[in-house]
Design a protein around this nucleic acid. Structure first.
Length: 278
DNA sequence: CACTGAGCCTGCTAGC
DNA sequence: TGCTAGCAGGCTCAGT
């Protein structure tokens, strides 16, 4: 599923391709994709607007428009936002197309999404400001320091994994990179966050940053659906140490059988020897 | 405040 | 071989 590194990769591929382009047409094939907007009202609002920048916030792809609105796409589980020089000639080739955006030059941005969980929304300046303020710290920003993470962990009394997945606390982490980060930092997913000292917080900080930076360098992790803005799969899958491993697989560090549990409705893989609760 | 479970969805697969 | 039940999970909302 697309998390911070995958969304960042999509943004990097799309930015040079769609910046300065003007919307000339919008088609919505699955109305719930643009909930709560009415499809025709969204289309009207976008017509003749120009993209002035493309950036990422949390797991959102954000198109900054010339009227200061922000058009956001959240890929959720299976979404893809794809640039195409020419419109698809045959929609039956794209059975999961949920929305398409045509630019003045004839190029298209296609929103493909098998599971229909993905969402596209338009925010005015105030709405965007509010959303931005509700989202947590960016883990690749300069302000995300070991001390900042330690303060976050101490200020809550929660299980570590659900806390790291909470987008209002730290923005952009998902199931893959949380499991990878916890494994590298040798922390148990159910470890109470407030009992983590500065030493382990520093380990966790380094693990998160290294895992994310490495995944971006590899242009994301493709398990099934994820593709960049140009339709290319990512290369990070082979770099994962535990995510995707079946329970019973030997721990890559100590050899003990990895175990699986469900934490916050999410499958979780960890090493019961390396990652101890305390 | 912290946590749990339902709901949204459909492709894939283990098991019969 | 063919079918089906169960699984995968980001996010929101309601309930404990």
């Amino acid at each position: 599923m697309p998390e911070l590194p995958e969304v960042e990769t999509v943004v990097q591929t799309l930015r040079p391709l769609i910046t300065d382009k003007e919307f000339a047409g919008v088609r919505i094939y699955w109305p719930r994709t643009v909930d709560p907007h009415a499809p025709d009202e969204l289309a009207q609002a976008l017509l003749h607007r120009t993209v002035v920048d493309v950036f990422r916030r949390a797991k959102l792809i954000v198109l900054h428009l010339d009227d200061e609105h922000r058009l956001t796409a959240h890929l959720r589980m299976t979404g893809e936002l794809l640039y195409q020089q020419h419109p698809p000639s045959n929609f039956s080739d794209r059975p999961y197309l949920r929305a398409s955006f045509e630019f003045e030059d004839g190029s298209h941005l296609l929103f493909d999404d098998v599971r229909k969980f993905g969402r596209i929304r338009l925010y005015d300046q105030a709405g965007w400001k509010q959303l931005d303020e509700e989202l947590g710290i960016e883990p690749l920003s300069p302000s995300f320091t070991p001390a900042a993470l330690h303060a976050i962990l101490r200020s809550h009394r929660r299980q570590l994994k659900p806390l790291l997945l909470d987008q209002t606390i730290i923005a952009g982490l998902g199931n893959i990179y949380v499991d990878e980060s916890l494994f590298r930092a040798r922390l148990h997913p159910l470890q109470p966050s407030n009992r983590i000292g500065i030493g382990k917080a520093t380990d966790l900080h380094a693990a998160i940053v290294n895992v994310l930076v490495g995944a971006i360098e590899n242009r994301g992790t493709t398990l099934q659906n994820y593709r960049s803005g140009l339709g290319e799969p990512g290369n990070n899958r082979g770099k994962l140490l535990v995510y995707g491993s079946a329970p019973g697989t030997p721990c890559p560090r100590c050899g003990r059988a990895l175990e699986r549990l469900v934490v916050g409705q999410r499958g979780t893989i960890f090493c019961p020897r390396c990652q101890r609760r305390y």
